[in-house]
Design a protein around this nucleic acid. Structure first.
Ligand code: FES
Ligand code: FES
Lengths: 143, 143
DNA sequence: AGAATAAAAGACCCTTATATCTTTATATTT
DNA sequence: AAATATAAAGATATAAGGGTCTTTTATTCT
């Protein structure tokens, strides 16, 4: 559905939003350890998000990645867009060249329900929503 | 969700199972043209399905791939199992090592609904079901 | 039997996803 | 100013997925 890279990105952003205590930077090492993801690979992904203006970072001692408060209002779809592109949510389930309701494949109707509910969540829920669920212990970022 | 390869496999099997095709050999060239998929690649996939006893084939003139009536009772999950393995339907949406309801990631609950509905369809619907929908023109195999 | 046909089989290639390593630039501390 | 710590940037590595090509084998037709 979405790439593994994109899943890492989403978890990374939520993690940073969670720890967001006024300009607190978090090193890539800590992030990777907390989320149980490959450190260097996570570094590259977060760099990409910095380039796309979703995160900030500073070099040097006590440097690291961070976000400002506005991150809480960001909808998840922006992260998917930055990493995978929106096309990832428009592909035919059975690998046909096109996906359309006018010329649906055998799985289209069923898949469309799932896909649009996921899309709707990505679009309507912001980072704040996910942060709250982590904070009250109903969901978790690491396995 | 499932691989492109697996989508091709499903479409190939349904194509071979269409009423007027049962017990008739169909060359890989015709199959590939009808479904608009790469011929040689489709050949490899169908060969794999022959090895897994889902299809039959014969070489030589008028040879090709074919199925017998029993294919109509096969549930789609068997094809997914043969090509991708059942694990493909158990991965965490956000790329964590494990997916579980006890320790759910932020997208787990929502994704679980989708995934289990897809899984349920794969398991409960047989090829006959899909063939009927193709035959009455409500769904289509090729774009 | 020999020629023609068509899939099987396996080697090979390209692209993308995933991951790591090395070098460079920058900020902080001394 | 020099040393040090740390992330950025970019090159490289690895694996998997997706796809092509060539040779072999089996079947049918003449
Ligand atoms: S046509 Fe296949 S999922 Fe839409
Ligand atoms: S834990 Fe992420 S989808 Fe189940």
């Amino acid at each position: 559905m979405i790439s593994k890279t994109c899943g890492y990105a989403i978890r990374g952003v939520i993690f940073l939003a969670l720890e967001n205590n006024i300009n607190k930077r978090i090193g890539i090492q800590e992030i990777a350890e907390e989320l149980k993801v490959p450190q260097q690979f996570m570094g590259k992904i977060l760099q990409e998000l910095v380039r796309k203006d979703i995160l900030k970072s500073t070099k040097g001692p006590h440097g690291g990645f961070y976000v400002n408060d506005s991150i809480l209002d960001l909808s998840l779809i922006r992260i998917v867009e930055a990493i995978d592109g929106l096309g990832v949510l428009k592909k035919c389930f059975l690998g046909r060249e096109e996906c359309s309701s006018e010329n649906p494949c055998p799985m289209h109707d069923e898949f469309e329900v799932c896909r649009s509910s996921i899309f709707e969540t990505f679009q309507s829920k912001n980072i704040r929503y996910f942060v709250e669920h982590i904070e009250d212990g109903t969901t978790f970022l690491a396995t």
